[in-house]
Design a protein around this nucleic acid. Structure first.
Lengths: 162, 162
DNA sequence: TCTCAGGTGATAATAGTTAGCAAATGGCAG
DNA sequence: CTGCCATTTGCTAACTATTATCACCTGAGA
């Protein structure tokens, strides 16, 4: 369902397969990674796949508790983190655990080193142009945007061999 | 100092004026906003302006303590938040306070409603093209990137009058 | 079925941030 | 200059999100 093909920004299609099949496929990939397939992991994955938005650990916890009333919030945290590690989920927002402040008010974006988490300013006029050319995306009023480019800086590349 | 003019991504010029002048200008704008100008606020603004990277509250705290040994970390948090409110600073990373997880692994970016903080997936091929066309930015190896587009959704627009 | 590495639940600990409140102070009226 | 008072500060406790610890449990291969 396209929102704005001209801009190249649109809602993606929902991934194929019904929920049951996707959870089955997930279970198989768990075993490939040498992970046990537990009812809790299935339930957490099912909740994540069923969610239209981007749930916090606590949201997943609430969803899963209907089926597993005794599950622990710690298990949900651990499992979501595990899913990210084996590439079955992505963590959306916080590369950093704490707020960073910036006194530079000129419009700019950020280069973030995935090793040392240092943040550098960059200007990116072409991004701004793409972003600024559109005031609406479907129902949504565009009020801004920001680009984070993940990099590995020289010193972090030297420290890791892979 | 351009890093990559072709891509339109480069390091921005440092804002004009020396540190003293910029802190003076800041003090004036504080009064315009009806805020007292306290030594603590000046010191925090100076530390923020002097910082090349994007300090956390604690980093600013450490810098300011040299001059104000008795300042409280809570004051630093409060002040940085105040600076953001009057537009003298920007908060870089976390629009959310907690991690969001996403089971959708196809390459995509996010629409974030600044009102309700809901997150929606969007594809943005033109952004990906810009980002993917460049493997290096100066010294930095590009390993990825993400775009967050800030929006106000319909229901949030209805709730706020301004 | 038996075994045990790995997973789970309960709880405590931690990091970052915010709230509450008494004391101190910036900035204006006189 | 002086005094007043709303704002701001520092201290502390509380709170939120997350991680660590550890005894018990269980998935899955022999």
């Amino acid at each position: 369902m396209a929102v704005d093909p001209k801009l190249g920004i649109y809602r993606p299609a929902v991934p194929a397969g019904d929920l049951g099949a996707r959870v089955e496929a997930f279970s198989a990939r768990c075993r490939e990674h040498g992970l046990s397939v537990t009812p809790q992991r299935r339930a957490i994955m099912r909740a994540l796949l069923a969610s239209e938005d981007h749930p916090r650990a606590e949201d997943v916890y609430d969803a899963v508790r209907a089926e597993h009333p005794t599950i622990s919030l710690a298990t949900v945290h651990r499992t979501l983190e595990t899913l990210c590690q084996i590439g079955e989920a992505r963590k959306v927002t916080p590369l950093h655990h704490s707020a960073r402040y910036d006194g530079n008010l000129s419009p700019h974006h950020h280069l973030v080193c995935v090793g040392c988490l240092r943040v550098l300013d960059v200007e990116a006029p072409q991004f701004d142009e793409l972003l600024g050319s559109q005031k609406w995306l479907g129902d949504h009023e565009v009020v801004g945007g920001s680009v984070e480019i993940y990099v590995r800086c020289r010193s972090c590349r030297q420290q890791t061999s892979d």
